[in-house]
């Protein structure tokens, strides 16, 4: 495709990028949230953030897909911190507003297909953030440790060490209690 920077200023270039990545982004989100409406909001937010920050992409720092995963991870982790009400109030495009009843069934199917990934994510809750970030990308999203390092802006050796530590910690601990990933319930979705 054309240079990634074009997606921030050329609607046609953006469409090519969107069609190539929409499913990847939806799966990425479905591995982390189990509410189809919140997933729709976050999907919209990931692409908005990509549009805003396309100018910052540097080919030497990873592939466009890897870069987009970095964007997606920031959006999802940001959502975990912010209250859902604030997220929606600030959103330029409300993803959930675009969702039809037919879409809900389809989005839920995708979310169901990723149930195992979310279970794994819950098991990572108590890991230090640095280790969790690497493990998420590698274990959940199937990204190589080297590319995960690029996405997170750390050295490959550091990523490997964190990965090793994270796996060791998970091996050493008992099975975790099942708790919600996000301690907030978006209005109208509970």
């Amino acid at each position: 495709m054309a240079e990634l920077v074009e997606i921030g200023r050329d609607p046609d270039a953006f469409e090519v990028f969107y069609r190539e990545h929409i499913e990847k982004v939806q799966r990425f989100v479905a591995r982390r949230v189990d509410d189809p409406f919140l997933a729709a909001d976050l999907t919209a937010e990931v692409f908005l953030a990509a549009i805003d920050s396309a100018h910052s992409y540097r080919p030497g720092r990873g592939t466009p897909t890897g870069w987009l995963y970095g964007v997606a991870q920031n959006v999802v982790s940001s959502e975990r911190r912010r209250q859902a009400r604030e997220l929606r109030a600030n959103q330029r495009i409300s993803g959930r507003r675009l969702v039809t009843p037919d879409d809900v069934t389809r989005l839920e199917d995708r979310i169901d297909a990723e149930a195992g990934a979310r279970e794994l994510l819950r098991a990572m809750d108590e890991l230090p953030q640095g280790e969790r970030a690497v493990l998420e990308l590698v274990a959940l999203d199937g990204i190589s440790p080297q590319e995960a390092a690029q996405i997170l802006g750390i050295r490959a050796a550091t990523a490997r060490v964190r990965l090793h530590r994270a796996r060791a910690r998970l091996r050493d601990r008992r099975p975790p209690p099942v708790t919600p990933l996000v301690d907030i319930t978006p209005e109208g979705t509970s």
């Binding site: 921030g8 609607p11 469409e15 999907t43 549009i51």
Partner: peptide, 22 residues
């Protein structure tokens, strides 16, 4: 679908940004 509608809205966002960037 949701994906089509989202694409339409996002392309509008990109189009609206273009004058400011130029």
């Amino acid at each position: 679908t949701f994906e089509d509608e989202l694409l339409t809205e996002l392309k509008t966002v990109v189009a609206e940004r273009t004058p400011a960037i130029k």
